Structure formats: structure tokens, C-alpha cells
Simulated assay, not measured.
Amino acid sequence: MKIVGIPFLLLLLFTSYGCQSKDKSKNQELVQQEHLEVPKKESLTASQLQEYETAYFASGCFWCVEAIFESVKGVKEVYSGYSGGTEKNPTYEQVSYGRTTHAEAVEVYYDPKVVSFTQLVQVFFGSHDPTTLNRQGPDRGPQYRSIAFYKNEDEKKIITNYMVKLKEEMVYDRPIVTEVKKFDTFYMAEEYHQDYERNNPNNSYIRNVSIPRLNRFKANFQSYLKEDTH
């Protein structure tokens, strides 16, 4: 497995597209999508989801992160939302403009018989730059910070041990600034954010930031991908 390092971010660092503006353009983008037919995704019921384990990560714009984890075999569902802060029931406008202590995050439902928590941690670190403080690509602010959440001591150990390995192998030429944080609460984002990359492929942010990030991940993690996402 090849770990994605700093070169992966060069394209993103110099693009002019940012996450903060995406809500303002929502209505315009929806109009552009009116005549675009996107195959409907089959969603799992609440009872079906209970059969799987959950993991939580934050690594920049949740549109991008959701699409990356959705492409991983063994992952059954991914939701975009907010976590890592103290405010209750935050909204997108509050979080994306840095008015809360939350970060844009994802909730990952996965089958541990197919993909392990360790592998999800590898996906997390391999699909973003964990050395940029309060920034991911063109998106700046603590709402885009890197966080690996753990629900128990075993998960915490997996995360910290992997970070030590990355440091020992000198994968990055700068210190990792990822927060390792005890999971508390995940707040689901507004409905139009769910599966946003899939449903809005012509959105300018999706075209110029999210899809290139996903494609770079796919190129480096081919053995982790679902058959229909190669």
C-alpha cells in the first residue's frame, strides 16, 4: 500500500475553489442538475445499519471524505455531518463559517468481516494531508481540521500506533497535526449534503477539488476499492 503524502495536495493547495462558498451556490447548482439523471442509490434502513460497526473521521470538506469512504469495500453507508465540538444541533452555515467548535465529519458504517478499523484508519491518513493545521486543500479554518475519533481504547491504540509508524517511516516531511479525539456525538448534516458528490457531479467544487482527490485516492488504494469503483 502506498501512503499519499504532500504531493497529493499540491493540486488542491493552489485551486481557488473553497468549501465555504458551496452553500451560497446551492440553488444555482441544483438548477444545473435538473436535467442530469443520476442513478438512485439504494439506502439501508435503520435496522440494517445496526448490523454494522461505525467509525468517525474528519479530514476536510465532508463531500470529499464521504465519497472516499463510500468507495471502500466493506463500507456499507457513509453520512456527512458535524462532530468534535460542544454545540448542540449545529447547522451547516454555523459550522462551515467557523461559528462552532465542530468539524465537518463523516459517519462510516462498515462490515468488520470485510474491512477492519485499522484499514479505515489507513484510508483516513492516506486520503488527506494530516500535516496541515486547520486546513485541507483550499479550505481553511478549524472546521476543516484533521480528527481521528475513537470509541474505545482499542481504537485509540490503533490510531496512535499508526501515527507512530507514519512518523518512523518518515512518510511526511512535516509533523502530523491530526487530533486523536474521544467520540461523543455525531450530528447529521442537512439532507442535500448526503451523497453530494454522487448527485452533483457538475458542481464546480466537486469537479475541481473533490473528484481529483477521490481519483488520487483510488490510484493509491486500488486493493481497497469496491469492484464498481475501480
Rank of each mutant, 00 (worst) to 15 (best):
E42R: 14
N161W: 01
K156C: 12
P112K: 15
D173T: 12
N89C: 00
R213P: 00
E153H: 13
L11Y: 10
T45S: 14
D139E: 14
G98S: 06
L120W: 01
K76F: 05
Y109G: 00
Q119F: 03
T15M: 09
N200C: 03
E168K: 07
Q50F: 03
K151Q: 15
N200H: 15
F8N: 11
S116M: 07
I176W: 04
L12N: 14
V4H: 00
E29Q: 13
P201E: 10
R135W: 14
Q48W: 01
D195K: 00
K113A: 10
C64H: 00
A55N: 01
F124Y: 11
E197T: 10
V121S: 02
Q194V: 00
E29Y: 14
R135T: 11
F14Y: 10
K76P: 05
Y109H: 12
T100F: 06
T86E: 10
L214W: 02
S204W: 10
I159Y: 05
L30K: 15
E87V: 02
I176L: 10
T45Q: 02
Q48F: 03
T185G: 06
D154F: 11
Q28S: 10
K167R: 11
F183Y: 03
S96Y: 04
Q32T: 10
H35C: 12
K182W: 09
W63R: 08
M1W: 06
S223A: 08
E104A: 08
V123E: 02
Q20P: 00
S71Q: 05
K226S: 11
T131S: 09
Q20V: 09
R174M: 04
F14L: 08
I206F: 00
L44G: 08
L49A: 01
S146C: 09
G84T: 05
N27T: 13
I176D: 08
I206Q: 06
E104M: 13
D154W: 13
L120A: 03
V72F: 02
K41C: 10
V75Q: 11
F183N: 07
Y196V: 01
N27F: 09
K88I: 01
